[in-house]
Nucleic acid binder design. Structure first.
Lengths: 349, 349
DNA sequence: CTGAAAGCGCTTACAG
DNA sequence: CTGAAAGCGCTTACAG
């Protein structure tokens, strides 16, 4: 023992074995005699010993750490993080812990080369990227990751260059289900509120699902029933203002996100429209606030537990050099009170 | 450069200096000639060199990393993180980044000795603890931190043993302001919904502020107007059910958190009570959902930007061996539509 | 199953 | 202002 911190040499000394054996025993190497291993582990526990991660990392060249990077629209309020991603964060940490990885989290992307900042520096073995929209703003950075053969996964974004790196929800199915639900309760003029551009690949897919459902029902797709909105409450409100002002009749809206729906509902109410009597509303995400609203919001739930698990498992596979085709996370329609129809008034507290 | 990753030796070779000089230059040591330093930095940039953090940590015995640990009521839904803490999380990461610290995040406390798991293992130089209630459940772990002279700060909790480790909001002032606001709009029978036990030190302080305001107004404190609730929506709803059933008249409620208020409002409505006409409601925290509700919730905002900054600065001070008396974060009354009175109908979208 | 030895890539006294 | 050298505490071939 002597002075200073306890090292594997101290354990070795006490156990009467070599330091190498201590190292092996603590890592559960099958090369160590089980009895010796238990003896070593017991001593380590008694001495409050913990493997020095810095030394371990340096020697093994693995950090056993994942970096979770959030990118956000730079225009959005810096202190407001999208609630959906916060839910993802919780499940990603849990999934990482299950795999024995530490998780480094960063919201501000000061660096313009994530591979160098995180992998080259030995901070993390892999990177998980999370963000909504503003895809054009960071695609150069993603390109650098690909060029550097970085171990990374990105949530939601699509594109051939992301092959094998992208994991997402089946947005088309989710949007199809949402729109079909609105049709099933008798709505005819369903507006889409969101961003159809490639800047928001997920929103674009949700638009496609919306179109698919209308087409399947033999209905046409009316450009006048599509209003642009980014993933913000205020943007949803502005879109509704525009729609109402246009004079175009509508009896339902499908919004590309819950945040948009929240703003939309406020603005619909201001315009004197009742929900769900005059207008049915379906959102997307199922953020916590969706169930708090009155009327509570019918929406498409993204399974953030499964999503977190997939993101973590996938990036760890990459780190281990395995190839794994990403699976899509299955979305689920959650019926609450914002649509009316046969299923209304369920899920009351 | 030959095989393998770029090291400080490669930079040194190219720059025609020793490796030690490279190390000094990249850390902005004043011991290096400014011109030499710039030359070295330029070469490092060109070679996409990054200091190997594992080596740096091992040698310096500093990880330049903070660990953020969340503890939560084990009874609460694992996938639902309190929105208030998620807002804290974002600001803590930003504050840590400003100080050039990485942030490790963990939600599940598998370890029962955080000092050993994080500091002894050289994972982190300091620990930030965040959590609501359930204080009794983790106080043994906090005691271990104190006994081990760990570098840690904890949000909200109080007690003489936490002296110098606790940073929090001025809960008494916040609750005083909330209650005084209710009195100012003419409310007389103000109920307190929350947990007054030491298990929820913050809620207890909010109760004290509530009492203080009533006393200052010359009113008595009525035990029948105090209903127990933990920090959950369902608990707030149950508390209101109890209050309504008791038959005790009330015209306002002050809830110990927004989450409680959300459940309370739902249940008040179910009881046929109008908000704010029949009952005024004030919450605490100002979580994102507070402004989404209808009516939007009057509440006490905790400045999570300042809080995050303080927690980070304080724990870094401890790491550096400095002593700093923690400051309280100042709460602020945010008036929305759930109280009625003179200020109602403000803040509309 | 075990041990002796090398070496991961830095930082930092020490000497000049 | 610069360099040579030591050493942080592990993991992992290599040899037995």
């Amino acid at each position: 023992m002597g002075s200073g911190k306890t090292t594997s040499f101290d354990i070795a000394h006490r156990a009467g074995v070599s330091q190498a054996t201590v190292s092996r025993a603590l890592r559960d190497s099958p090369l160590v005699n089980p009895e010796t291993r238990e003896r070593i582990k017991k001593i380590a526990r008694e001495l409050n010993y913990q493997i020095d991660r810095a030394a371990s990392r340096l020697r093994s060249q693995h950090s056993n750490t994942l970096a979770l990077l959030f990118f956000e629209d730079p225009t959005s309020d810096a202190s407001q993080i999208n609630p959906f991603f916060l839910s993802m964060l919780g499940n990603i940490t849990r999934a990482a812990a299950r795999r024995n990885y530490d998780l480094l989290v960063s919201f501000q992307q000061l660096s313009d080369d994530w591979h160098i900042k995180y992998e080259v520096s030995n901070r993390a073995d892999g990177i998980i990227l999370l963000g909504y929209g503003a895809y054009s703003g960071f695609k150069d950075k993603v390109k650098k990751l690909i060029d550097a053969d970085a171990h990374f996964v990105i949530w939601g974004a699509t594109g051939p260059h992301l092959r094998g790196h992208s994991i997402g929800c089946d947005n088309i199915k989710g949007a199809y289900d949402a729109t079909t639900h609105l049709l099933s309760i008798g709505r005819k003029n369903i507006a889409f509120i969101g961003n159809k551009t490639i800047d928001s690949p997920e929103f674009k897919q949700r638009y496609e699902g919306y179109c698919k459902a209308l087409t399947a029902a033999g209905l046409g797709i009316d450009p006048e029933l599509q209003v642009y909105a980014t993933n913000q409450e205020t943007s949803g409100a502005a879109a509704i203002a525009e729609l109402v002002e246009s004079g175009k009749p509508f009896d339902a809206i499908f919004t590309a996100s819950d945040l948009i729906a929240i703003g939309a509902i406020k603005r619909l109410r201001k315009a004197g429209l009742q929900i769900p009597d005059d207008v049915s509303v379906v959102g997307f995400d199922d953020i916590p606030a969706a169930s708090y609203l009155s009327p509570s919001l019918t929406t498409i739930r993204q399974d953030t537990i499964a999503a977190g698990q997939q993101l973590v498992d996938h990036v760890i596979c990459m780190i281990n050099g395995e190839v794994l085709e990403p699976k899509k996370v299955v979305p689920k329609l959650v019926i609450r009170d914002s649509c009316g129809g046969k299923s209304s008034a369920a899920n009351q507290l």
